[in-house]
Write a protein that binds this DNA or RNA. Structure first.
Length: 109
DNA sequence: CTCTTGACTGAGG
DNA sequence: GCCTCAGCCAAGA
């Protein structure tokens, strides 16, 4: 693994791991923190490799608090249940009180 | 190098 | 509120 390869994907995992319990963030927010503000899609794409790692991908949602990535989880509502187990209310694939649970790495770190 | 694919986002109808 | 379009950028074929 060359140092140059230690970039996007790994950084995404690092940030994801730093998400506090009971909080969520958006792909775009992570992208901004990584210096790739326009690469929100890449963040999500990177999450594809988050499997097998201790990356809480369920804490990463789109900017509207919508669980757009839930289809990548095993069950139909696994992602939602994981979030609810952390005290986050999710209704119809959308996070409630998003402002209260939102965590922006570019501001919190 | 070119083309396709996205777990995105914002603007417009 | 819903749907569509366009811009964005990295990785893989």
């Amino acid at each position: 693994m060359k140092p140059e390869t230690l970039n996007f994907f790994d950084k995404v995992y690092e940030v994801a791991k730093l998400i506090p319990f009971g909080r969520v963030t958006s792909y775009g927010a992570i992208g901004v923190y990584l210096g790739a503000a326009r690469s929100a899609r890449m963040v999500g794409y990177a999450m594809n490799g988050s499997h097998g790692k201790d990356v809480p991908a369920h804490r990463v949602v789109n900017k509207k608090g919508l669980l757009t990535g839930k289809h990548h989880f095993a069950g139909t509502n696994l992602m939602q249940q994981l979030l609810e187990s952390e005290g986050i209310i999710v209704i119809n694939n959308q996070i409630q009180d998003l402002e209260k649970v939102y965590w922006d790495p570019s501001k919190e770190l």
